[in-house]
Nucleic acid binder design. Structure first.
Lengths: 136, 136
DNA sequence: TTGTACTGTAATTTTAAATATTACAGATTG
DNA sequence: CAATCTGTAATATTTAAAATTACAGTACAA
């Protein structure tokens, strides 16, 4: 998974959950994240494509939630930002002439799938509504 | 968690599991990993410190398992290489003047702890002996 | 109908993290 | 005592992540 995308997405969705009737600008979101608008927009486009948010272009535009907070699960966000397995393989292709080298990545791939699934199960049990209760 | 340390450690331990009576040199291990000896030695020192392996210096030296494969759990390796949470926080400190910014990392920290725990539970159920059965 | 304030996207630069390399003192064996 | 290994640190390189810049396109509002 890419380093911090999950945190960034949860942060964005939390801001929207707190002001469901406002169109939040990328500038505003960036200031809460202490980041910059272009990077936020990139992340917004991922969330939008998945239907979690909707955006409005032009003056007074911005983004807001596309679903009720109780209908957004933390696992939805996880699946969006996860790219390959959560755990990473070794940087180089192992030596195929070695008995272990030839097969380990297959075995790890299987294990990593199970790990991803454990995380998914956990996150599926938590909605954005429940999560944001912690600070609203 | 640091990118690929888990995979590298599992690979190393698997090699040793396959040749329990040999002292494997860092050179040999590196060739299976398609990596280099110095990096392998660094990882070996982590495993050694945890008692998972033992090493012998000098000529004909090397490393081998310090425990039976059935007594090494994948969670032991996980705890060694895990550094902070598996999931990462956003790169910058969020804006503390913002209601969400001020509290989100606390909420995420709690959630991330639960995720780490889900992974731990899963990995605790698998021994190195079971894992290596997949390719021996 | 035009200025302003947004989005969307791509290209580029910068920074930070991971990985690789080099080097060498110390240990052990034959 | 020569050869072969470890242990460790310092440095260099590579790669990935994040930040910045830029600008065309859209919508509102005066």
């Amino acid at each position: 998974m890419i380093r911090s995308k999950f945190s960034v997405s949860v942060h964005i969705l939390s801001l929207m959950a707190g002001q469901p009737d406002e169109w939040l600008s990328s500038e505003y979101i960036a200031s809460s994240l202490n980041s910059n608008p272009a990077l936020v927009r990139k992340e917004l486009s991922v969330l939008r494509e998945a239907g979690l948010i909707e955006s409005k272009e032009g003056k007074n535009g911005g983004s807001r939630l596309g679903k009720a907070t109780k209908d957004i699960r933390m696992s939805d966000i996880f699946l969006l930002v996860k790219n390959g397995h959560v755990f990473g393989f070794a940087p180089n292709e192992p030596n195929p002439k070695c008995a272990v080298g030839a097969r380990i990545n297959g075995a790890l791939d299987e294990l990593f799938g199970e790990i991803d699934n454990s995380i998914f199960q956990k996150l599926q049990s938590i909605t954005l509504a429940e999560f944001t209760k912690k600070y609203f």
